[in-house]
Amino acid sequence: MLAIDSAGLVATSFRTLPPLDVVRAESVGEALQELRRAKRPAILAGGTDLPARFNVGDYPDIIIDIAKIKQLHAVFIDKSELVIGAAVTHQSGSTHALLPAVIPGFQEAWKKIANMRIRMSGTLGGNIMSRRTRYEGAILLAALNAQLEFATLSGPLFMAAGDLWDAELPVASLLQSIRIPIATKPRLDYERSLRPIFTQAFYVDDTGAGRLVSATEFVRPHIWAFDRNSQSNPSPEEIDFQDPVTGTAYLNQVRAVFFMRQMTRLGLS
C-alpha cells in the first residue's frame, strides 16, 4: 500500500505503475551513466523483488536492465577471495562446483534461500540490495565477512556486507560483485529451523575467528565477532532485538541455544 501523507492508503501494484523508460545496459559503465542521469532508477537483474516495491508505491521512472552485462554473472576465485557476480542467480550460484570446497556449509545454506521459482531467477545482488533480512542473503554474507564491490563513476567502492544497512551509496553505484575471503578456510553453519522468527549464521575460520549473525524477519542482522582464542567473550552478549512480534528474552535464549549447537556442529565444543 502506498501511504500518502496528506490522505491515506492506496493499494498500488504493477497495474498502477506509471510509464517509465527502459535501458538495457551492455556494460557497467553504461549502467552507471544511466544511473547518474536518472531520478528514480530501478536496477533490474532477476526482478523478483520489484513488484514488492510497486506494491508500496515505490515507482521507478527508469528501469536499468543489467541482465546482459556478462561480468556480473561470473563466479570465480580471485587470489584469496570467492567472487560472485551480483547478477548470479541463487540457483546457479548455490550449485556452482567451486562452493563446497572453498566454504563448507555455504552451499547448503544458500540452497535454502527462497524457493525454487525465486532461486532460478532471483540474484544474490538483488537479494542483498533489497535490504530485507527476510531474504536471508544479507545474513549469510555478513557472516562470511563478504565485501560488496560497487562500481561508481569514481572507481570501485568496497563495503562490508554488514555495513550496507546504514550506508549512503553514491547515486550512480552498481553492485558488481560479492567477494568472500577464503584464505583462512572459513566454514559456515546456518540455522534456519525457526525461520522466519529467527535465523542465525555462524562462521568460523582456521584462525579461530568467527562471526555470529542473528536476525529476525523484521529487524536487521546483529553481528557478533567471535574469537575462539579469546576467553573474554565465550558467549554472545544479549541483544535488544526490538522485534515487533517476538520477545527479546526469547530471541536471546534461542540465539544462545543455536550458538551452542552451531559450535558443536562446527567442531568447536
Binding site: 502506498l2 490522505a7 492506496v10 493499494a11 498502477t16 506509471p18
Partner: peptide
Amino acid sequence: EEQAAAALALV
C-alpha cells in the same frame, strides 16, 4: 487502474 491510483494520490 494506473490513472485511478495516480488521481487518488492527489486527494
